[in-house]
Write a protein that binds this DNA or RNA. Structure first.
Lengths: 207, 207, 207, 207
DNA sequence: AATGAATGAGTATTCATTCAT
DNA sequence: AATGAATGAATACTCATTCAT
């Protein structure tokens, strides 16, 4: 164990108690971040929420940023669910399922997603991560779109990258609208409509 | 008790010199906000940029928030340009023009738009303004879409509100992609593709 | 006219207009001082009140302190009125008259007196002036008391200085009580009672 | 929404060290307040005096005002000492004792009393507290005076409230004179004279 | 003399991070 | 590992006073 590696080593919870404190802090941080946003969140409040001594925070994390990353990592936000489908599923059903999955996941994680949005406005690395997440969704769409174009069941004149990003952005935008209560439609209708718009947009044919 | 008499006297630009200083400050603030973001922007830097004494800032503005609002107001960001079209213009040309206008305006104001985005993550009033701006775009699309549906040249089964917001969100998303340099397409191709996606999505017929 | 003498020369109102502005500022200052106290009073508010341009203040006064002194000087606060009495007036009537005069004058000038009190807590020169004013009252009492003692109509074992200051302090204290509305007695009864206490205290005999 | 959890965490002296720091700050604040007055006192100076880091101030107090209140509370200024006397003590001895106690206590606490006076000129709550303190003294005198009147050993034509306040004010005034070194008499003579004036004033008879 | 803008020193307050026990 | 106190850099804001027209 060299010096360099110990320099920033923090308790990683090797003991049971340690693991517990660490987890309490992550949970508390998520609560506080969602309540106050990253900027207004104070370490002291996180510790209060976690029922942890003030100083213990730094036993486990080097900074507010670090715990934020941990919180983000701890949240399983998989906005993507195109793949685990049977290969012979009808394309439109895949799209519908993906849309529903996206909207539901977004809704379930709206709190932390907003904080991520906030932090991404001044933290380059979070911004990158956020973009990557959406890109992943877009890339999956892009792959599928190419396949449909090759199969001749989608508009071949569309640029797959742009189509994927545009449609992904469309779904993301509506997801936010639903969460903020600004939508007159409920989630089911939104899924229907998005699916229709989407399949129209790429002129998807029933194979 | 005369409250007004207690109110702080502020330079309102009674003099030419005053108007100038005020404007310099607004311009300087915009520069600094775009360079550092709202959070990292310091009043001192704004004054340096504006070639103004520190104290002069408070001759014109009560706070960093206030000057930010002024900056936002001073920026003419009209993302919308659907209406000034001749009534008999072909629908697809209207859509194309709107898309181009949106992308170009977004690009031209990308710097301040990012700051607005940042501030809207913790300032409710800015958040509202931001949403209103996008809503305005969406409502215009919604109106148009209804007309097309009534004319029988657009898919009547689409919900106009959702279609408008979804398509508006799609354009907004691509606008951001273009600005951040993540797009393999240039703005002209993006306009083309978005227009195609859009007209496909609502199944727009050439009348 | 040498440099030294012009260094701090300020407009003294040699023209009619100048005299007027100067007077407006003094009047405005008194109003603002009485309303807000010296500490919270702002030059800007004084100028507003005086209907005078902001910068004009320094045409006439070098500082907030200076105008305060002018205000104090402009107010005729003569808490003393023992002398102008006919030499053969009955002693108790002199005391009664002095008490009444003190209470009435105090009441009439309560506003500025409070400000003077405030300033005297951090400005030595004002403190001195304030003390001098009360001392003047006390010295007059002291003189009278000595006379009464020499005439054999007052307790000769009393120290005239202490008696004078104690009785003067007594009147001053009640004056403040009357002004602040904490007294159950009205001014007439207060005069009566103070006069009685006073003449009792020095065991004044009707000559 | 749990407001308490958002409240700033403050050192409440859970540790011995904490208690100590807090006390050092209060002591240091008193020293600085007495030296510079409330207005000129700077937090930094208080911390220097208390041998404490700048930030530690805010571990214990929210503001300069708050620590001032603490300082005032921590000072045991009991200007009153009429009651603990044996019920059969001679009235004049009670008065003498009270006078002596007042003058001595005032002298001992002259420094902070001046600061209290200063703050009371712009802080209503301190002003109230200050008045209450003097009122307590006056009310005690008032009670006693009534008793003497009922016993027929004091002038029955005096208003007890006014007499009490007038005599209390008299003592307070002399106390200040003694402290400021403006008195030609020493404290013992002052006590004698005040006692004589007082008993004369209410025409106290030896029972 | 009038006007109103320019100047900048002075300070309270926050809170992430470090440290001693 | 836990605890809670100590630390101090960073900065917005006030307003008396000066200055240019």
């Amino acid at each position: 164990m060299d010096v360099a590696s110990t320099a920033k080593r923090r308790g990683t919870g090797r003991t049971e108690r340690g693991r517990q404190s660490r987890q309490q802090l992550i949970d508390g941080a998520r609560t506080i971040f969602e309540r106050d946003g990253f900027l207004r969140a104070r370490i002291a409040d996180i510790c209060d929420e976690a029922q942890t001594a003030y100083g213990s925070f730094y036993t486990y994390f080097v900074s507010k940023e670090e715990i934020f990353h941990e919180v983000v990592d701890s949240v399983e936000i998989d906005l993507l669910r195109l793949e685990p489908f049977p290969e012979d599923a009808k394309p439109i059903e895949r799209i519908r399922a993906a849309n529903r999955h996206y909207l539901e996941t977004y809704q379930r994680n709206a709190g932390i997603l907003r904080v991520i949005m906030q932090v991404s406005t001044f933290d380059e690395s979070v911004s990158q991560t956020r973009i990557l997440r959406q890109d992943e969704f877009a890339r999956a769409i892009e792959r599928r779109t190419r396949i449909y174009q090759e199969q001749g069941i989608a508009d071949a004149t569309l640029d797959p990258w742009l189509a994927a990003n545009a449609l992904g952005g469309m779904v993301a935008f509506i997801a936010e609208k639903l969460v903020s209560g600004d939508s007159p439609l409920d989630i089911d209708d939104a899924v229907d409509q998005l699916t229709k718009l989407w399949s129209n947009a790429i002129q998807l044919q029933d194979p």
